[in-house]
């Protein structure tokens, strides 16, 4: 089969053949895009131009997009989401990298530590997590017991608007496992010879980290940065099951607001418009990161 396909394109130029082969490799994904993803995307876009509750629709053009400019909750949700992204992504990545570097080498018990530290990430966004987190940061929770030692008065960290968002940031950092796994696989692709050479030159641990590990790992850091940023912008479940957007809308993430508009207020059209705005915000940030990446990402292969 594969040979047959190859023969068909064999007459073309080297580059031309490469083109066609590339599309063979991409075929499953491309077909998937057209069959499974394109239609829901188009539908959500056309809905964003309507006033609709899914069942009764009225064409309103750009009205939804105009409306969101003066929507105070929407603006609040952008602020909350940005704050969350800027806090949680760097913290999570730094922590994941730190742990991955420690667990890179083989030593007694390393498999246990890797698995144990990965454990929290497995729990996902279930009801059990919600109960656990609410309890932990609640008035009678263990966090209050711990800070009580330092003389800090107990409070409901989740009900207090000045701390609620941070509890969700901590939850995000706590579930750092996916990034750690990706860092681990990246770290092991750094040739050991580089470290050996540096050690002979007498480079300190810190120097080796900054001069070998970081640059060699930069493509993976870029990947994690992009994907965690996209993921953080779309944070929903944690707020949905734990804080419901409150208190004082301090945890009203954009996607939570979109969900409320879509399913509580039955304004599917408006929710779709919000979603497309979110898409462009995320796209802008992603492209910005990718643009800057040529200054700090090092590809050995190119």
């Amino acid at each position: 089969m594969v040979n047959m396909l190859k023969d068909r394109f064999a007459q073309g130029s080297r580059v031309g053949r490469n083109n066609m082969t590339a599309f063979l490799f991409l075929a499953p994904w491309l077909i998937g895009i057209f069959v499974f993803t394109l239609w829901p995307f188009i539908t959500s876009f056309t809905m964003s131009l309507q006033e609709t509750n899914l069942f009764v629709s009225k064409w309103v053009g750009l009205e939804n997009y105009k409306q969101l400019l003066s929507d105070r909750r929407f603006i609040k949700s952008i602020q909350v989401t940005l704050k969350f992204v800027f806090l949680s992504v760097p913290l999570k990545l730094a922590f994941a990298l730190f742990v991955a570097v420690m667990l890179k080498e083989r030593f007694r018990g390393v498999n246990f530590f890797r698995s144990a530290l990965y454990f929290p990430s497995l729990i996902g966004g279930s009801v059990a997590v919600a109960a656990m987190w609410t309890q932990l940061f609640g008035l009678r929770g263990v966090i209050n017991d711990v800070v009580g030692i330092f003389g800090i008065r107990p409070r409901s960290w989740i009900a207090d608007p000045s701390t609620a968002l941070y509890t969700l940031v901590i939850l995000a950092v706590w579930q750092f496992g996916s990034s750690m796994v990706i860092f681990l696989s990246g770290l092991n692709n750094i040739p050991q010879s580089l470290y050996e050479a540096a050690e002979i030159d007498g480079a300190s641990r810190l120097r080796r980290f900054f001069h070998i590990t970081l640059p060699m790992l930069s493509p993976i850091i870029l990947f994690n940065l992009v994907l965690q940023t996209i993921g953080a912008f779309q944070t929903f479940t944690q707020a949905f099951i734990i804080t419901k957007g409150g208190p004082l809308n301090e945890t009203l993430f954009m996607v939570l607001y979109i969900y409320n508009k879509a399913f509580t207020a039955s304004e599917m059209g408006y929710a779709s418009a919000l979603s497309w705005v979110l898409l462009f915000i995320i796209l802008a940030f992603t492209l910005l990161i990718l643009r800057t990446s040529k200054y700090w990402v090092y590809y050995e292969a190119e």
Binding site: F41, L227, M268, I282
Partner: peptide, 8 residues
């Protein structure tokens, strides 16, 4: 990856 699951 950027359009929220909820509206899809």
């Amino acid at each position: 990856l950027m359009l929220p699951e909820q509206v899809l």
